[in-house]
Amino acid sequence: MTQPDFRTPELDDLAQRIIPQEHFEFPTETARDRFFADTRMLDVKQLVHNAFRTNPRSMVDHMISNLELTGTEDLLDLGCGNGFILEHLRPHLADGTITGLDNAPAVLDAARRRLHGTATPFTWIESSADDLTMLDDDSFDRVMANYMIHYVPDLERCFAGVRRVMRPGGIFQLTTDRPDSMVEMYDVHFAALRALDAPADLFKATPKGRLSLETGAAQLKRHFDRVKKVTWQDQLRFTDPLPFMEFYATGHNHCCASSVPDPRLDESFYENLRALVEKEVKRRIDANGYFAVTKFTGSFLCR
């Protein structure tokens, strides 16, 4: 199947103009205790990505195909979250094993409940992805880290740990975004921030800028002999502002502006921010038939 190509000169120009070089950074404790104290962020993102995508092949399907599974492998999922990806992957490992690791107890419990009773053996570990000391050398055929590596405190220790626990001939899949992914959402967000005369330090890019699809290869090549980048595109299309607003406000914390408490910003600020964003999204829907959010994403396959 030929992959859709949503990249246009207009989107490239927009990204050049509005995506900042500086990106948000959040400690792993913030992610554990705030973002993933429950599964709401993950639930909203997963629902929206499935319901509003236009690529007929999902990103999860793409990730599974990258792993080249035969059905008997032992797989380690770093930052397994609520088990959404593992639920789809599990039938491809009917005679293998799966280990899910996450440092957030709430989402790890959700994953455990989600996969409870399946025939594939599961092991659940509460730990940071840069501490794999409880795992033996050469114990996994496949390791994956999907959209979570930017929260890991010590990336070098994480990658060295993955190299140690991965068997010869194994595959480590690290999935992340390009810096300009979802540029349309950032466009309406930054315009609303400007209209509200928001603090300058809110104008930052996604935390995935810490290790993006543009920059990650150099870090990974210090630990793996072969690093291949496999890109993926999709476009979410909304004909009603409300599901997009849930995606924006709950799924992405207002493009990270509300990720941590800020004494400068009260609830009325966020109410006004949402009102301006929703108004612009509705205007674009009325003008174009839908509001698009383009995903430029992909995986590094490391061997």
Score class of each variant (00 low, 15 high):
1 M>C: 02
6 F>D: 12
6 F>S: 07
16 Q>S: 06
17 R>S: 07
19 I>D: 03
20 P>G: 01
20 P>K: 01
21 Q>M: 06
22 E>L: 00
23 H>A: 07
25 E>N: 05
28 T>A: 04
29 E>V: 05
31 A>D: 09
35 F>K: 10
39 T>C: 15
40 R>Y: 10
41 M>P: 00
43 D>W: 08
46 Q>M: 11
48 V>E: 10
48 V>Q: 05
51 A>E: 13
53 R>A: 05
53 R>C: 13
57 R>C: 03
58 S>C: 12
63 M>Y: 03
64 I>A: 04
65 S>F: 08
67 L>M: 15
69 L>E: 03
69 L>C: 06
69 L>H: 02
71 G>T: 10
71 G>L: 07
73 E>F: 01
74 D>A: 06
74 D>W: 13
75 L>P: 12
77 D>G: 02
77 D>S: 09
78 L>F: 00
80 C>E: 07
87 E>I: 15
91 P>W: 12
91 P>A: 14
98 I>D: 07
99 T>G: 04
102 D>M: 06
104 A>S: 14
104 A>K: 05
105 P>E: 13
105 P>I: 13
106 A>H: 11
106 A>E: 15
110 A>C: 09
112 R>K: 12
114 R>G: 02
116 H>E: 12
119 A>D: 12
121 P>S: 02
124 W>M: 09
131 D>C: 03
132 L>E: 04
134 M>T: 15
141 D>T: 08
142 R>P: 04
142 R>L: 02
145 A>E: 12
146 N>P: 03
149 I>K: 00
151 Y>H: 10
153 P>H: 12
154 D>S: 11
155 L>G: 01
157 R>A: 11
159 F>Y: 15
159 F>K: 12
164 R>G: 05
166 M>V: 00
167 R>N: 01
168 P>Y: 02
168 P>I: 08
169 G>K: 06
170 G>Y: 04
177 D>P: 03
177 D>Y: 04
177 D>E: 07
180 D>I: 15
181 S>V: 04
182 M>N: 10
182 M>G: 02
183 V>E: 08
187 D>S: 10
190 F>A: 09
190 F>N: 06
192 A>R: 07
195 A>W: 07
199 P>Y: 07
201 D>S: 04
202 L>C: 11
204 K>A: 01
206 T>R: 12
206 T>Q: 14
206 T>K: 10
206 T>I: 14
208 K>R: 03
212 S>Q: 01
214 E>D: 03
220 L>V: 05
222 R>I: 08
223 H>Y: 13
227 V>C: 04
227 V>L: 10
233 Q>P: 02
234 D>L: 15
235 Q>V: 03
235 Q>I: 01
238 F>E: 10
239 T>P: 13
249 A>R: 05
250 T>W: 15
251 G>A: 11
252 H>Y: 01
253 N>M: 07
255 C>M: 05
257 A>R: 14
257 A>Q: 08
264 R>H: 08
265 L>K: 11
265 L>S: 11
266 D>E: 13
269 F>A: 00
269 F>T: 00
275 A>T: 06
276 L>V: 06
277 V>K: 11
280 E>W: 11
280 E>C: 11
285 I>F: 09
286 D>I: 00
287 A>W: 04
287 A>M: 03
289 G>R: 06
291 F>V: 07
292 A>K: 12
292 A>S: 15
294 T>Q: 00
296 F>A: 04
298 G>S: 06
